[in-house]
């Protein structure tokens, strides 16, 4: 079965790296727009780190649900919010990039995850294969 979390994370990482490479290319071609491309890249890196953290937390909560152990761990929202704020502060205060571009970058990884999830659900409904090896 391919509709699982590690596969989703791998694909999200791949597509987010694609966005990062687009930002690098834009930075190289249009140096005048450095605040926008740079802010977008910093935000994208922050959102990717947040996605990794969220995947770790989700796996941990699923483990706890399966084993039936009781734990007082939270969902890690504060940590992810701190990652976002850190990305924004580094981008705007330290590197003097654009704030709106940074916010757009922070939104990149969740949007990629949403689109991948919707495509995967549609493919599974159609009964098509969902990975390169023909497995479902």
């Amino acid at each position: 079965m391919m509709y699982d979390l590690p596969a989703l994370i791998r694909r999200t990482t791949r597509i987010t790296f694609f966005f990062l490479s687009l930002g690098c290319i834009g930075l190289a071609i249009w140096p005048d727009y450095k605040p926008y491309f740079g802010g977008f890249m910093i935000g994208t890196i922050g959102s990717l780190l947040g996605s990794f953290h969220l995947a770790w937390k989700t796996t941990r909560i699923a483990d706890l649900a399966v084993t039936g152990r009781k734990s007082r761990s939270g969902f890690g929202y504060l940590s992810r919010a701190a990652i976002g704020v850190l990305a924004a502060v580094v981008s705007v205060q330290v590197l003097h990039f654009n704030l709106a571009a940074t916010a757009a970058g922070i939104l990149a990884s969740p949007l990629v995850t949403l689109l991948l999830g919707l495509f995967t659900i549609r493919r599974l409904k159609d009964g098509q294969s969902n990975d390169e090896r023909g497995e479902k």
Binding site: D4, L5, S51, T58, Y77, R80, L107, P110, L114
Partner: peptide
């Protein structure tokens, strides 16, 4: 478990994107 965690990941990622941006 795999399906449910993936669905939860998608949902939580979307739910949390807006407050993080609002915080920034």
């Amino acid at each position: 478990r795999g399906t449910l965690t993936a669905t939860a990941f998608i949902g939580v990622g979307l739910v949390e994107a807006m407050p993080i941006i609002s915080l920034v």
